[in-house]
């Protein structure tokens, strides 16, 4: 099943600043909602998102329950060389998703 949807340009010029957009599939249960019977629904969220570029971290985010369901994030990075952008989402209850995209820089 699709866990995430990532948009990275397939090719870029060296030194170009590129936008990266990432959408992950997750309910982001806040931990503040109650069931009809009044019981608290336990928190279940993605806590961290990390992007590495050829193994070096270029962007990281920490999420709290106020991040909307199916978290969306857009950020920028400088296209320095051809290679791989790797994305990792980790969260409550052992949630962990890895995705990667390649980019060719000329």
């Amino acid at each position: 099943m699709a866990r995430a949807l990532i948009n990275v340009p397939a090719a870029a010029k060296r030194g170009e600043i590129i936008e990266i957009k990432a959408l992950a599939q997750h309910n982001m249960e806040t931990g503040y909602r109650r069931t009809q019977l009044g019981g608290l629904i336990p928190r279940d969220i993605i806590r961290q998102f990390v992007c590495t570029y050829n193994g070096v971290e270029v962007f990281r985010a920490e999420f709290h329950p106020a991040i909307a369901a199916n978290p969306f994030i857009a950020f920028w990075t400088v296209a320095i060389e051809s290679g791989t952008l790797a994305f990792t989402w980790t969260g409550d209850n052992g949630y962990s998703v890895n995705e990667s995209k390649s980019i060719s820089v000329g």
Partner: peptide
Amino acid sequence: DDTANPGMLWVLDGEA
């Protein structure tokens, strides 16, 4: 924007 539309996550599931 297909890359910002959360509905596309369901479309991708549907494709699979």
